[in-house]
Amino acid sequence: MLTLHAPLVESTRHLVDERLLFRVKPGAILINCGCGGLLDPDATLAVLESGRLSGVGLDCSTPSRPSTTRCSTTLTSSSPRT
């Protein structure tokens, strides 16, 4: 399991990219408790669809804008685990 707890600043934007995600243990779950911009959304989706990640939990996705409404999303891979 990989969890993120970081503010979004220029140095953390897309901190979690395809290069990092393809290095995680197969079947891992990624949970972003920080800002949406910490994840590269295209890379996250590609790695999830590949089956490398078994799930992704997002408190907010990109773009991350302050609002009174909280968003919460959980994505799971439909790829069979090997």
Rank of each mutant, 00 (worst) to 15 (best):
C35T: 02
T62D: 01
C60H: 08
I31H: 05
S67F: 01
C60Q: 08
S77R: 08
P26F: 05
E10I: 02
F22M: 13
D42T: 12
P66M: 12
P80A: 05
G27I: 08
H14A: 15
E49V: 10
P63I: 00
P80H: 10
C60L: 14
L53Y: 05
L38Y: 10
G37M: 07
D17N: 12
E10D: 06
T3V: 11
T69K: 15
V24A: 04
R13Y: 06
L53M: 07
P80D: 01
P41N: 00
P66G: 11
E49Q: 14
G27D: 04
P7G: 08
L8P: 02
L20R: 00
L20I: 00
L75A: 08
G37F: 09
V16R: 01
C71N: 15
E18G: 11
T12V: 01
V9H: 05
L48A: 11
P7H: 06
A28K: 02
C60D: 02
T44D: 01
T82Y: 12
R13A: 06
D42F: 00
L8E: 01
K25P: 05
I31A: 02
P66N: 09
M1D: 13
R81F: 10
P7Y: 07
G36I: 00
L53N: 04
R81I: 12
A6C: 12
R81S: 06
T74S: 08
C71K: 15
V24T: 14
L45V: 13
N32M: 04
S67N: 13
C71I: 11
S67Q: 12
S79W: 13
T62N: 07
V24G: 10
L15I: 14
C71H: 15
G51L: 07
S72F: 14
A46N: 14
L21Y: 02
T74C: 11
V47I: 11
V56N: 08
L58Y: 04
V16N: 02
M1W: 13
T73L: 15
C35I: 03
S67G: 14
G27Q: 11
T68D: 12
S50P: 05
L75H: 10
P26W: 06
V47K: 01
S54I: 03
C71V: 12
A28W: 15
A43P: 13
E49D: 12
P7N: 07
G37Y: 01
C33T: 07
L8Y: 09
L53A: 00
I31C: 11
R52H: 11
T74A: 06
L30T: 02
A28C: 07
D59N: 07
R70D: 10
L30F: 10
S79K: 15
S77T: 13
R19W: 15
V16T: 03
D59E: 02
L38V: 13
R13T: 06
C60R: 06
S67E: 12
P26Q: 07
C35N: 12
R52Y: 06
C35G: 09
C71A: 15
L45T: 09
S67M: 10
T74H: 05
P66W: 13
K25H: 07
V47E: 03
